[in-house]
Write a protein that binds this DNA or RNA. Sequence first.
DNA 1: GAGTGGTCTAGACCACAAT
DNA 2: TTGTGGTCTAGACCACTCC
Lengths: 239, 239
Amino acid sequence: MDESSAQASTPIFQQIKDYLVGEIATGRWKEGDLVPSEQALVRQFGVSRMTVNRAVRELTAEQVLTRRQGSGTFVAPRKYQATLVEIRNIADEVRARGHRHASRLHLLEGAPASEALALQFELAPGALLFHSLIVHFENEVPIQLEDRWVNPACAPAYLEQDFASITPNEHLMAVAPLQGATYSLEASGAPREVTELLGIDGRTPCLVLKRRTTSQGRVASVVTMWHPGHLIQFTGSVG
Amino acid sequence: MDESSAQASTPIFQQIKDYLVGEIATGRWKEGDLVPSEQALVRQFGVSRMTVNRAVRELTAEQVLTRRQGSGTFVAPRKYQATLVEIRNIADEVRARGHRHASRLHLLEGAPASEALALQFELAPGALLFHSLIVHFENEVPIQLEDRWVNPACAPAYLEQDFASITPNEHLMAVAPLQGATYSLEASGAPREVTELLGIDGRTPCLVLKRRTTSQGRVASVVTMWHPGHLIQFTGSVG
DNA sequence: GAGTGGTCTAGACCACAAT
DNA sequence: TTGTGGTCTAGACCACTCC
């Protein structure tokens, strides 16, 4: 047809989205500015309101715009500048690299909660918790020590699992649907118990990921994962 | 009106979404299963196709379902079990803790790309790049060394910026809309140049975040950020 | 050819905000 | 009261897949 310009076959709602994003990207519309109303866009593009509505609604879901019924549509405040780093569970990570994953169970028992753990679990000190200590291997090289405490109320059969064939993570995902997690990430040296199990020396920097997960309103699991820094590297991409 | 049952005012498309999610959550529909077609849902709920379409389309955007034109709608494969760690830019991170952020510029110059950098930037070796070296402080304590290389095509005025009042990140976000990023994260010791600028000794474990951002189809920036592991800790939550 | 999803229309009624 | 967004309808045409 060789019509006006850049239509080609891009859906109309997408063209409208591109137009709106473009106005923001080039700075013509700034944070907080009022964006043309649906009616105005209907006239401008000569399309039906449903089509305009879809474009604007999707950009609202994408946090590019904000809408207030009765008031109008506005350019959303710019997003937090953040890098999202995706840390997959260790078995997936290893397999994704095409390597062999294995693990060795060093401890699996019930134990009373210390003061600190009781606080983390929101339970009384001395309450029964399950405790496991597992070393994960990538091609027979130890790459993670997983020190995990589990709430028996969330995973009653935890002590009966065969952690050679299933990771604690997989078991917990199966029996306790994940609700949320808090985490912290830091680099540090490791105490002797850790260095011995990982077969590293005390000066090796370790990447330490602590994670506390909740399920059905309870704290399900508190885990500390130690990774020898020269062996592990988390990579990924966003956007 | 006190009508049939649980309508109340929840939009119909949302009720349909809830129904679909419920069937999956309870396990009645499993990964890969065929979901009722739009026509079937139209009949089941007695609503128009547009309403059903919106429900299913939004769940597809949320990666709960996948659709194939001509074939049907299916339960999406379960998401990768991953912890998303959000690493905010250092100035925001420090201010969020209620502390003072400051920075000192140690180097800001144009320099030819080494072989390795040229590869990263997808430019010819020897091409002009901008290079900056900045130490960031939290309450006067150095917590990050930012070693950044920038593509002049993406930020031509980079060398003229006042990096005491604006961070390189902020400048780049302003002039080069972020398209995507790849990153890696590891723990390691730091070379002498780094330890000197951060005022730490060579045995201090460091958290090293490398990040490569693209903008408008070009590699905009390659940055390595060194954090003394005993001082910095990234925390957050998901879910 | 029948069934699927992808898109679009030209209306409609409603809740809400600004005036 | 007017204009805004929020939702919904009952059709339509198309591209694609499967039989």
